Simulated assay, not measured.
Amino acid sequence: MTPGFQHLIRLSDDTGLFEHARRAVVRRQHGYCTDDVARGLVVISREPDPTPELTRLAECYLAFLTHAQDRTGAFRNRLGFDRRWHDRAGIGDWWGRAMWGLGTAAARGCAPWIREEALHAFALGAERRSPHPRAMAFAGLGAAEILRTTSDSTMAAALLTDAAQAVGTPPEDPGWPWPQPYLTYANAALAEVLIAAGDLSGDRSLLGTGLHMLTWLSDIQTRDGRLSAVPAAGWRQGAPRQRYDQQPIEVAALADACAVAARVTGDPAWHEGVRRAAAWFLGANDAGARMWDPDTGGAYDGLTEDGPNLNQGAESTIALISTMQQAGELG
C-alpha cells in the first residue's frame, strides 16, 4: 500500500486541519494551526491531478490562511475548535509557512480562483519581513514557487533575495559549513532556499554555497547507508549528538531539498537523498521501524529509542505525503 491523503482528510473539517491526533483519532481540543494548514496546502497544490475532495480541501485550507491573515500581511497561528483565535497576528515561522503554502498554491493550484486568491494573499504577506531566518527561508520557498512560473515577479524575487540574505552564508570551516552554530528543525530548508535563490537569480556562487551546505547536511545524517536525522533536540557544534527523538519534518525537508538540487543541477546523484528519506518511513532508520500506519495512511509523530511515537498528527502525516511525492517523481 502506498501512503496517500486519507489521514489528511480524516484530520480535516470544514474549518481547517487539526494539529494533533491520539493514534489516528483527532484531538479536537488542540484545535488548528496556520503552520499545518499551510503545509497541507503545499502538498495538495503539488498534486498534478487532484480529486474533487482534495480540491475542496485546498479551498478550505486557503480560506483558513486568508482568514488568519491581517491587513498588514501578518498571520495568526492558533485557532481553537470554538473558532476563536488564541494569539495575535505575527511574522514567526507560521508567517513563513503560510507564505510557502500561498506561493505554492499561486503557482500550482488546481483551479484559477485558487491561484488568484493565493497570489493576492501572498502579495500582501510579501510586504513583511521576519527577523527569524527559518521563517524567511520558508517564505522564500513560496517565492521560488512563484518565480518558477512567473519569472518577472519583482515581489517574489525581492522576497527570495531577502530570504537568502537572512539565512546567511557559512564560515570557512570544513567541519561545520553551516551559517549557524547549531542545527534545529527543518534544517535542509535553509540550504534549499539558497539553492533556489542562486538558481533563479543566476548567482552561481550562492547556488554553490547552498549545494555545499546540503551535501554536508546529507552526509552527517547518513549512517550505514540509511538516514539518521538530527533529532528534535537539535545539535550544537562541538556537543554530543543525540540519536532520538527523530522527527518526520526533518526527513521531508531533506527530501525536498535533494529533489530541488537534482532538478537544478541535473545530477541524479541527489536522488539518493530522496530515496533515503522515503526509506526512513518504510523502516530504513536507526530503530528499523516502519514510521507510518498502512491502515490509516498516517505517519507516526517521532522515532524514539523505544520505537515510533504512535500518534499520527498533521505535521508528521504531511511530511510523509511530501516525501512520497518527491520519491514518486523519480519514477
Rank of each mutant, 00 (worst) to 15 (best):
A287R: 14
S12G: 13
R23G: 15
R10K: 12
Q247S: 03
A197R: 11
I195F: 09
A163L: 04
F281V: 02
A121P: 11
G103Y: 10
L227I: 03
L211Q: 06
V37N: 11
T209D: 09
D152W: 06
A259M: 13
T150W: 10
R204N: 06
L254Y: 02
P174W: 13
T150H: 11
P3R: 07
L65H: 06
P133Y: 11
W95H: 09
L124Q: 13
P308R: 11
A135F: 01
Q165H: 14
F5C: 03
W270Q: 07
T104V: 13
Q312A: 10
L11S: 13
S45A: 15
E117F: 00
G331H: 10
G140E: 04
R71G: 03
A21S: 13
V274S: 10
R243N: 00
R88H: 12
L41S: 12
Q325E: 12
G31H: 03
M291N: 01
P170W: 04
L320G: 12
H212S: 14
D14M: 03
G142F: 08
G202N: 07
L207T: 12
A191W: 09
L200T: 02
A278C: 02
T323P: 01
P240E: 03
L8R: 09
A63C: 04
L65M: 14
T2S: 13
M213G: 11
G297P: 08
T161Y: 00
L159Q: 11
D301C: 02
D36F: 05
E172H: 15
L147Y: 10
R204T: 08
G73S: 06
A21R: 04
A262C: 07
Q312L: 00
N309Y: 02
G90N: 09
E250S: 06
T215R: 15
G210I: 08
G234F: 01
D87V: 02
R71N: 09
A68W: 10
A233Y: 00
T150I: 14
P133A: 02
A186M: 01
F5Y: 15
S45W: 08
R56N: 04
